[in-house]
Amino acid sequence: MIKRKKWSKLAVRRNIAGWVAVSPVIAGILIFTGLPFVQSFYHAFTEFNGIEKAKWIGLDNFKYLLDYDLFKYSLGITIKYTVITVPVNMVLGFLFALLFNVKVKGIAALRVVAYLPCIIPGVISAIVWKDLFSPSANGRFNQFLTALGFEPFPFLSSPDTALFSMYLMGLWGLGGGMLLWISNMNAIPDSLYEAASIDGAGRLRKMFNITIPMLTPVILYQLVMGMVGSLQAFGSSFLMTKGGPMNSTYFMGLMIYETAFTYMDMGLACAMSLVMFVMIGCLTAIVFKTSSWVFYGEEQ
């Protein structure tokens, strides 16, 4: 009896200590993520300018969005951007990793060089690339194109090419994904490859039957993170084009920001962000539901 009482007292102390240790983070989640999330959810159904009291208007914001051409257009280019950049960056990152994993002299230094663009702050890469893309006679890329005998390319200054220029700039950060592939490639046990060699498998065979299956968790990770990231991406358009020319780089993130803080229509902006949240949630769920192709090793 006495022994049992003592044990439970210890358990109480342990529970208190545990909750005290995690309480700052749990409080932070409730205050800085949970509460704003609930509020945004509520404000999506209201007319709200951030100052006056929110007025309940039911589904009006969502009905408005259904007929709002700019919103649909913005949603379209955001999806287009995601659908193109995520697979292209994944495949190119993988090819880079294959290349940069070949054991040649000085490869470590070359990897650092390839990763260099990833450590440059976003504002600075925007400054650097805006200058490279400049349509004037002093734009570096156009200087090279003309020197090689091509027509000057408008890059960010034309609605037809601005989004393409954004993809191009996105490729500059391939080094980050590459390092992730490389570190996971090197974690694959050599014994697998040795066994395959004994069985007479060639390079390609090993790649498709060992490397890629062993890397499927990385593929899943990059797919989900890439999707969530590029659906929300708007940094480069905010810094370089402000959504232009003619809204050709007006990503959803930028639209939500401008609706809320430039036009002070926070209710509508919350409705937009909710659409985004549902979209991201559904896509992630679909990817996870159909992730039977992912191989998590032979854990029993």
């Binding site: 993520t33 704003p36 509020q39 951030g50 659906l231 993130g253 809320a260 962000s273 909710l274 991201i280």
Partner: peptide
Amino acid sequence: IPSCVTMISLYV
């Protein structure tokens, strides 16, 4: 939870 969902309410 994407940050664009919480940013408006956080600002308020």
